[in-house]
Simulated scan of single mutants.
Amino acid sequence: MRKSVIAKSKKGFTLLELTVSLFLLVILTLLLMLILQTTINTSKRFLDYSNYEYALAHRKILQIYNNSAKVTQEKHYIIMTSKDGMEDVRINFNDNQIYMDKFKNSNDFAGYILLLKHIKGYTLSVEDETIHILIVDKNNHERDMYLKKKDEKTDKEKAKEEKEKEEKARKEKENQENNNKYNKTDNHVEIEKTKPITDNEEGS
């Protein structure tokens, strides 16, 4: 019995056992490679801030856009006027950087914010009342943004229009009252002219 066990151990691995072992080794190697690749990609994403930077810039532009009554594009600017009409914001595409310039009452410069830097290029175009912004970031990623043009009335314009309406209504009312007063006076004069002379008036 002891001799048979020793003899069996000397035979070594069978072909099936070698095949299974090799297959398991290949699977293990592939899993390790996949884990390594995932780790590398994750590290690259953590080290690549372009997605994060663009997301912040995109969010800031949309915040200003949603609070704007007017949005137009001129040359390398996108101009947004706030709903209250008190502030203009210009998205300034300047060479390899994008700024957000702020103006109070359309003329008084109030400061700027750097939105993106080290971009490799950009294009601005308008089609069907929609502004298309294409940005090529520092890692050659193309970023698209679409903004619908706006031409709504600001709160300032609405207040001015309301004031003009009230002033117009007031003047019309005054004119009407003056006309009524004038007509009343004319009617009174006509009545006096056509009033018949009584006997007492003739005797006097």
Rank of each mutant, 00 (worst) to 15 (best):
S4C: 09
V5H: 08
A7Y: 14
K11W: 12
G12V: 07
F13L: 15
L15G: 01
L16A: 03
L16E: 07
E17N: 04
V20R: 04
S21N: 08
F23H: 03
L28V: 01
L31A: 11
I35L: 14
T39I: 06
T42C: 04
S43Q: 15
A55T: 11
R59K: 14
R59N: 09
K60Y: 08
Y65P: 09
Y65I: 05
N67A: 05
N67Q: 05
K70T: 11
V71M: 04
E74L: 14
I79V: 12
T81A: 07
S82C: 01
K83D: 03
D84H: 10
G85L: 11
E87P: 01
N92F: 03
N94Q: 08
F103Q: 10
N105G: 03
N107P: 00
L115F: 03
K117E: 15
H118Q: 11
K120L: 09
K120N: 12
K120M: 09
S125C: 01
S125Q: 05
D128V: 00
E129A: 11
I131S: 00
I131H: 00
H132C: 07
L134S: 08
I135K: 12
N139G: 02
N139P: 00
H141Q: 15
D144K: 15
D144M: 15
Y146N: 14
L147E: 13
K148C: 08
E152L: 12
T154E: 13
D155G: 15
E157T: 02
K158N: 09
E164T: 08
E164F: 05
E167I: 05
K171M: 05
E172P: 00
K173N: 11
K173P: 02
N175S: 12
N175A: 14
E177Q: 15
N179D: 14
K181S: 12
N183W: 08
T185E: 14
D186N: 11
N187H: 10
H188W: 12
E190V: 06
K193L: 08
N200W: 06
N200I: 09
E201T: 13
E202I: 13
